[in-house]
Design a protein around this nucleic acid. Sequence first.
RNA 1: GAGCCUGUAGCUCAGUGGUAGAGCAUUCGACUUUUAAUCGAAUGGCCGUGGGUUCGACCCCCACCGGGCUCACCA
Length: 526
Amino acid sequence: MSEQTSNQLSWPFREAERVAARLKEKGKTSALFETGYGPSGLPHIGTFGEVARTSWVRRAFTEMTGLPSRLLAFSDDMDALRKIPDNVPNKDMLKAFLGKPLTQVPDPFGTHDSFGAHNNARLRAFLDSFGFEYEFASSSDYYLSGKFDDALLHVLANHDQIIEIIRPTLGPERRATYSPILPIHPRTGIVMQVPIERADVATGSVIWVDPDSGTRFETAVTGGAAKLQWKADWAMRWYALDVDYEMSGKDLIDSVKLSSAIVRALGAEPPVCLTYELFLDENGQKISKSKGNGLSVEQWLTYAPPESLAQFMFHAPQRAKKLFFDVIPRAADDYINGVVGAREATDPHANPAWHIHGGNIPVDAGSPIGFTMLLNLASVINADSPEMLWGFIRAYLPNANAQTYPFLGQLIQYAIAYNRDFIAPNKIFRDATALERVGLQDLAARLAAGFADYPGETPAEQIQNMVYAVGKAHQFAPLKAWFDCLYQVLLGQMEGPRFGGFVALYGVERTISLIETALARETQAA
RNA sequence: GAGCCUGUAGCUCAGUGGUAGAGCAUUCGACUUUUAAUCGAAUGGCCGUGGGUUCGACCCCCACCGGGCUCACCA
């Protein structure tokens, strides 16, 4: 990487530089990237964004340093079940397990050993569906297997100091009871938020009193008998695993600061952290799983390929962006243009497509036709099958089909869906005038009777001539008014395709029913 | 109260120190037995305001104004 390009690095490379600097300072020769997952929910669009972005930094790090690295996807499945989620069955059953670690709660779906295991499986399936390279890690596994024991004892030794870091940030009630160590009740299995009477470094345990029974307990901090409160948990994990890089949303800025302070209290340096801006819905509100606003991954992937979602996530992570249906076509075209640009560029490292494809852009990536153009075309010809679009496209790309242009083939499917759900419903269909009704009825009748007698080399030309003849027969003046009628009454748009070609591709029978539908609609309205 | 983002063409937004950009919209033109996707061109900007740094600032620094979000219970 030359000096000249260093000031135009794309953000993953800038982040990778920071990671490389940290490793150099610490004398490390491999990097650990981490992404974390809260227990409350299923994978969502933010999950995709976080893993994709972290993967790009990791890829840039590899490109830049040649050093090995790992990406750990860490699930907080030891966290307590705090409330019953809305979107699960067997809610009554779950009530008895409130407050217990998720891996100790039965799976309400009945498909896995625990609710935690269920959520973990969903997360992994989600990540795998995009082909992310990562290692999965379960908090419960780490706690129970003793992998955190040394770090937990170190936390215990610094118990008072950690309390002093957190305490000023808490409200009065919580301030009185706060401890970073949450013992798990030996009888009920509930994660307890109780005052710690004494932190016994010698025995590696905490003394606490059950507020319900008044019973005093001594609980080891190791081996999964206790867990840590969230901010301390994050810090301990950074410390125990020596995490080098982790990103998080701006809603966690304060948590990052506090966790970093705790890590320093433990005598280590926090990882390189990146704060990204949140995703907003069309009203500028934070996208929230519980509110269900904004756009889901499934919805996005109904209307555009995964690469376009990656493109959206690539651009300016530190800038807030509205995440709604309107942004999809542009993201798709930005990606397509990026593929072209990356192929032409002498240094492709700044190009999103380079990152999206992990440095190796497939030969059949990209498309000779942009997504917006496909949407226009789909709208104009009212396309509801891929073959209709291919038919028009072949006028310009004679050999085009789903085999020769596989990515274009995908885009066509997406364009049809987008047109069906967002463009077609908003079309304005004008009512036919009395003269136009007669003309349309005549056209439907002639279509049904066949058009072999009309001049023309192809069916499309024959139909075109027939349509022309109908317009003349009913004395439309100017003749353009007849075609305006066809587009505005039948297709709901001001202008449209050459009608003969449209009918040939759309189908005679379906065109007839299109006419019948239009005429029936007016009868109903009247 | 603390923090983050943001202000650039009519709209949505790119643009990290060297002559202000794209898409859409608008207008005109080309192509087509009438009509479309398309193609070509034009129009359109005190880059929020005021200072500072610099040979040079949309860009860096400071202040102010406007728009918006997040956190202050849990994670």
